[in-house]
Structures are given as structure tokens and as C-alpha cells.
Write a protein that binds this DNA or RNA. Sequence first.
DNA 1: TAGCTGAGTTCGAAAATCGAACGCAAGGGA
DNA 2: TCCCTTGCGTTCGATTTTCGAACTCAGCTA
Lengths: 148, 148
Amino acid sequence: MPYSNFASMPCTLSRPAALLGERWTLLLLRQIFLGTRRFEDFQATMDISRSVLTDRLNVLLQENVLKRVPYHEDGRTRHEYRLTEKGRDLYPVLMALRTWGEKWMAPEEEESFHLHHRDCGGGVRAKVECTECAAELTARDVQVTAKQ
Amino acid sequence: MPYSNFASMPCTLSRPAALLGERWTLLLLRQIFLGTRRFEDFQATMDISRSVLTDRLNVLLQENVLKRVPYHEDGRTRHEYRLTEKGRDLYPVLMALRTWGEKWMAPEEEESFHLHHRDCGGGVRAKVECTECAAELTARDVQVTAKQ
DNA sequence: TAGCTGAGTTCGAAAATCGAACGCAAGGGA
DNA sequence: TCCCTTGCGTTCGATTTTCGAACTCAGCTA
């Protein structure tokens, strides 16, 4: 099974993992959540090669994670890349990465940006919880049952 | 800036994203959380090339996400790959991917495994919350502040 | 002694990525 | 009209990664 076959496996974890597990894709999403929307800006801030950038954007468009939205500048119509609802729903994935990074990869308090809740100013943290009792869960609290 | 430089950027999101954003790494972690621990088993279940598997395992060992643990079988000592505490803490990342996959990528109810809370039998869901008021947050509820 | 097994290593072919140049359409200015 | 600029790609040859199959090696077992 080549890598690409995971993208069509009947598993709701392996398909997203294969999609976001391609080189550059997670970093591209980070940039998008930070507000970057235009081809030139992705290219400049990430220094990704233009052909790969084109490819990754197209994959995300095809998956309906991004959409192309027209806008006007200098009287000209151009397009920018924006998150769809499906794309915005990836926020917990990025926040889970960041929560992990804060705990395990921050040598000091260094960060290139701060995040806080608009309403109360609090911090932001990803977690896993039980849909019934709302307890916070770790891997040890969860039972895995194979489907066959 | 080549891809590898993101691994040393002063950003607690880009470093994890660069690490887990390498091809095969997320799928490898999925397999580990599902219980796979041995080289041959990774190779057989994922059909990854042996040289890339060696490389990815070594990167995760170096990052202290995995550790090699000796075990005995047929009177011989071998080693298996197991999660460290740092590795176990990646659970929310995988669960966030799965939560997203369940919502947006499941054509039917199909899943290759079920997860439930050992204590109460409930389902499992990743979410983002405020560290102060405990409200559940979406991207829109969060303010990003650049550090300079 | 020979064979088996788990865990890699090696190596030539194929695929992905890189970087630099090129293409192109829509203005703007002369 | 002609030329220049901008944003957004496309193309292409060189470099890196990945692939897959064969090979190695250590520690048993027969």
C-alpha cells in the first residue's frame, strides 16, 4: 500500500493523517490560521517552492478545506485563499499541536505569537474529553475496539 | 528557509508541525497508539519502505517521543518502540484529527475502530477550551497577537 | 553445521522537491 | 499605442526523498 492509499482507507483517523501528513501542509495551515491568504505571501513567509505551494493549495481546495475568494485591489479582481467551515474546523488540530509544543518543545517561554480568548483574555488549550461524562481523557482512559 | 528550518523556529506551533508534518510520521503515530510496537509490524501493517521506517523511528527516538524498551521472546532479548510521556501527550493531536475526520470525511459511519471512555463508555472528542473560563473555543473566539 | 527470524542497511530506480527562469493577463503611465 | 509592473502561476533541469528488493548480522534452534 503506497502512502496515497491511506487517503482512501476506511478510517477516520488515517485519512486526515495522510492529508495533513504531507510535507508543508501543516505549516501552510498554520500560516492560514495566522491570516495569510495570498500566494505571494505564502511563498514569501514560508519560502516554499512555488510549484509545491501550487500543489498543496490545490489539494486543500479539492478537499474543500480552502476556497478561492475574489477581492479587489487597484481596481483589479484577484483571488485569495480562505478557510471553509471544514477548514476552520481544523483549529483543534493546530491548537493540539501548539499545546503540545508549549509543554514539550519550548526551551524558554519563547513564542512567535500569543493567543487569548477574546471574551475573557484567558489562554487557549486543546484537550480530549468524554462525550458523556465530560471528563478529560488521556490515551490510558480510552478503550480501543477493532471493528472486526 | 528550507523545510527543516521550521524544526528550529522559535514558535511552539511550527516546530511540532514540522516534526509531525513529515510524510509517514502521523500515520506511524496512529499505528503506535493502536498498539503496534515492533519494526516488522509497522512495516507489515503500513507497507512503508524499511529505510524510511528506520529514519522516522530514529527521528521520534531522538525527539524523545518514543523509547526503545527491551523485551524477551523465545529466550531472546529484542527491543520494541513505545511512547514516552511526551509521546503519550500527543494523544490530543491524533484525537483532534479523528474528531475532524468523523465530522468531515466519513462518507458513512464507517470506522476501522471504536473508541470509548473506559469508565463510562462514552465517546471521545477533541476540543479547544479557554484556560480561564473553560468555554469551548473556535478560531473566531481567539485573538492572535504577534510577539513583536 | 545449517537454518530461521527480527531488525535493520544498502543500492539503483522512481518520485517529490528545489530554485530560477519563463508565461500571462490586467492595469497604469507615457 | 507601447512598455512596465504585479500577482499568480508553469516549466524545467538539478537535487533530495522515497521505493522496493536484496543483502547483512546477531542470536537462537535443529
